[in-house]
Amino acid sequence: MYKIGAVGDKDSILAFKSIGIEVHPVTDEKEARTTVDRLAEENYGLIFVTEHVAQNIEDTIERYKKKLIPAIILIPSNQGTLGMGMDDINKNVEKAVGSNIFANSDK
């Protein structure tokens, strides 16, 4: 059975603990890379990573996008969103459907 984890600054991911998701607070880029790699090796099927952490470890995140497991989902931090997670969703929907069904029709 796969586990679920969350990686990011402590304030952004602590709430995940209340619903049974293991939280892994990180404070710098090196610790973030090491944590994501360790979770991927330890049978985690889903890893939530805050966008503010992900922007500093894009090469690590990209490496796991090519693999089925673990799925890495970018989430906003308590500082707000950078739009990275929604961009990923839009790209995947466009790839699957053939067009971006979420595109803003006002443009």
Rank of each mutant, 00 (worst) to 15 (best):
E41L: 11
N90Y: 11
T27D: 11
F48E: 05
N104F: 15
E58T: 12
T60V: 15
V49I: 12
N104E: 15
F48T: 05
L68K: 13
T34F: 10
V93Q: 08
K107A: 13
T60I: 13
P70C: 02
K66A: 09
E58Q: 10
K107D: 15
P25R: 05
G45F: 01
D37C: 07
D106C: 13
I61W: 04
G85E: 08
L46C: 09
I61H: 02
I73E: 05
D88M: 11
T60P: 06
R38V: 07
H52P: 00
M86Q: 11
I61G: 06
D106P: 03
S105K: 15
L14D: 15
V26C: 13
E22F: 00
I4H: 00
N100E: 12
A6K: 04
I101W: 06
G45T: 01
T60W: 01
K91Q: 14
A40Y: 00
R63M: 09
K65Q: 06
A32H: 05
G85H: 09
T50W: 03
Q55A: 06
D88F: 09
I19M: 11
K10I: 15
L82Y: 03
H52Q: 07
K67M: 07
D88L: 10
T50A: 08
K107L: 14
I89W: 10
K3E: 07
S77F: 03
G8E: 04
H24Q: 12
N104L: 15
N56C: 02
L14E: 14
N92H: 10
D9P: 05
V36L: 11
K65E: 11
T34W: 06
D88G: 05
T35N: 03
R38N: 14
S99V: 13
V7R: 02
E31Q: 14
N100C: 13
N43P: 00
S18F: 10
E94P: 02
R38S: 15
H24F: 15
T35Y: 02
F102H: 14
E58D: 11
E29Y: 02
M86N: 09
T27P: 00
L68A: 13
M1T: 10
V97E: 10
T27L: 10
